[in-house]
Design a protein around this nucleic acid. Structure first.
Lengths: 158, 158
DNA sequence: GTTGAAACACCCTCAAT
DNA sequence: ATTGAGGGTGTTTCAAC
């Protein structure tokens, strides 16, 4: 049984799911919702934190309220496959605050970046900053017409 | 000046960035880092919360510690474009806990899902659960070979 | 904007069961 | 595993500048 080897059970999973949805829940609320005493619940959180599973909390901000209303996935294919170019490219990517996620990927593209911009004008500005002098083979923006959901909690398979 | 029309300044931006990176910072630490008194800093957080910009906090969990070590973006093209099919499809997607993000997208694909699975076997299982009976035209997994960064803070453009 | 202080809630620990 | 209780810490509010 895998849950045994990982040393956690359904209650831990529920705890993790709850905290990923709302880390402002008080110990009392948490304890109530998982059906444990406040004390036992706190011990579990401690264990999960020490095990490195709970890594901290982050504030959630409303992008739209900041004018960041367009989500776009940028697919990139490069002509260069040496280390020094890759480092330069990563630095370029990191310098773009609109890019909130970045992966090296398999398949017909080399990289994928997720960006959130102020409309299409914001994307265009980002695009120009991104490509200049990088000699990319191909770049295409895949636009989110409707972000149906984001940020769902990670849950350990049963 | 746009920052004036949005009624917030550099300090608010710094506050939001800090909280998005670590919401466990105490009011004292926060205040120190933005160069404000604890009191003034707290008032700003209040304003940002009431304005709906700060929407809460979420716990961050280490996926790898749960065995969730493979990130994959699933591109989907469908043959159906009516409402009732779309609703059925969304319900199917929502029933898959590995899928943590889901967009309707423009371009040559209709939907994109981001999933985190226990290796390739986990992806294969998800894939089968996903497609059965949905009559999709085309589905392809774009695998993250290396998630270079994720979860960067949203920042309002200057 | 600032400091300082008080009221309060919550967290964490401990003791006992 | 549970309850209950204490001390300590941080948050929130308020008064005065």
């Amino acid at each position: 049984m895998r849950s045994k080897s990982q040393n956690f059970d359904e209650i831990d999973n529920k705890l993790l799911a709850l905290l990923q949805q709302d880390a402002d829940l008080s110990q009392r609320d948490l304890a109530d919702r998982v059906g444990l005493s406040q004390n036992a619940c706190w011990r579990r959180m401690s264990r999960l934190t020490e095990a490195g599973i709970l890594k901290g909390r982050r504030a959630v901000v409303d992008g739209a309220a900041l004018g960041l209303d367009l989500t776009v996935f940028i697919m990139i294919r490069t002509r260069h496959h040496d280390d020094s170019w890759a480092r330069r490219f990563r630095a370029r990517i990191e310098a773009q605050p609109e890019i909130i996620e970045f992966h090296r990927i398999g398949g017909e593209w080399d990289y994928m970046a997720k960006a959130v911009t102020q409309g299409m004008a914001g994307y265009d500005a980002l695009y120009k900053r991104l490509i200049i002098g990088m000699d990319l083979e191909r770049v295409t923006g895949v636009f989110s017409m409707e972000p149906i959901f984001e940020g769902r909690p990670l849950v350990a398979p049963g």
